[in-house]
Simulated assay, not measured.
Amino acid sequence: MLKLFITLQVTALAVIASMEDRIVEHRRDERGSVTIEQVIWAGAVILIVGIVVAAIRAFVTSEAGKIK
């Protein structure tokens, strides 16, 4: 019974170590992360510029309506 327990424990530890190696290997692979970050920043800038343009257009349109 003790041999079975030890065998199961060693097998479980080997499986856990293998999973940890795979997880660490995937974490180190950061190819493309800079590109994704740049796309997100570009999208944010475009969104902010769109909001500013819409606000200016609304202001100018409302003020133009006040001209006699």
Rank of each mutant, 00 (worst) to 15 (best):
W41T: 11
R57F: 09
V53E: 08
V52M: 09
I36C: 00
G50E: 06
R27Q: 15
R27C: 11
D29W: 07
I36N: 07
A42K: 13
V39R: 13
G32Q: 04
G32T: 03
V53C: 07
D29Y: 09
V34Y: 08
V45G: 00
A54S: 14
V39W: 07
H26Q: 14
V52T: 08
A55Q: 05
E30L: 10
L47T: 04
A42V: 11
I40P: 00
V52A: 14
G43R: 09
I46L: 13
I56V: 15
A58D: 05
V53I: 15
A55C: 06
I46K: 06
E30I: 12
S33H: 08
V34P: 00
G50Y: 10
V39M: 13
V52S: 06
I56Y: 04
V39F: 07
V45Q: 03
T35Y: 05
I36P: 00
V53Y: 07
V53H: 01
I51Q: 03
V49G: 05
A54N: 09
T35F: 06
V45K: 11
S33D: 12
I40S: 05
E30P: 00
T35A: 15
H26C: 03
S33R: 13
E30Q: 12
L47F: 11
Q38N: 14
V52N: 02
I51Y: 03
D29I: 07
V52G: 04
V52H: 02
I48Q: 06
A58G: 08
Q38G: 01
I40H: 04
V45P: 00
V39Y: 08
A55T: 10
V45T: 08
S33A: 14
I36A: 15
A54F: 12
S33Q: 14
A54D: 06
E37C: 03
I36S: 10
G43P: 01
A54W: 09
S33K: 13
I36T: 11
A44D: 04
L47R: 04
I56P: 02
R27T: 12
E37T: 13
Q38F: 04
V45A: 07
R27Y: 11
D29V: 07
R31L: 03
I51P: 00
I56A: 13
G50D: 04
V49H: 02
V49Y: 05
I40K: 11
E30H: 05
R57K: 11
V45Y: 04
A42D: 14
A44R: 10
V53K: 05
V34M: 10
I46Y: 02
R31V: 09
I56Q: 02
H26R: 15
E37K: 14
E30M: 10
S33E: 15
A44Q: 09
V49P: 01
V39S: 09
V49C: 08
A42I: 11
I40R: 12
D29L: 10
I46M: 07
V39I: 14
R27E: 15
V52P: 02
A54Y: 10
S33V: 14
A42H: 11
G43Y: 02
V49A: 15
G32P: 01
G50S: 12
Q38D: 10
A58N: 11
T35V: 11
L47G: 13
S33W: 02
Q38L: 15
A54Q: 04
R28L: 13
E37S: 13
G50H: 08
V53S: 03
V49F: 10
V53R: 03
V49M: 09
G43A: 09
R28K: 15
H26F: 05
V49W: 04
S33F: 08
V34A: 12
A58I: 03
H26T: 06
E30K: 12
A44T: 04
V34H: 07
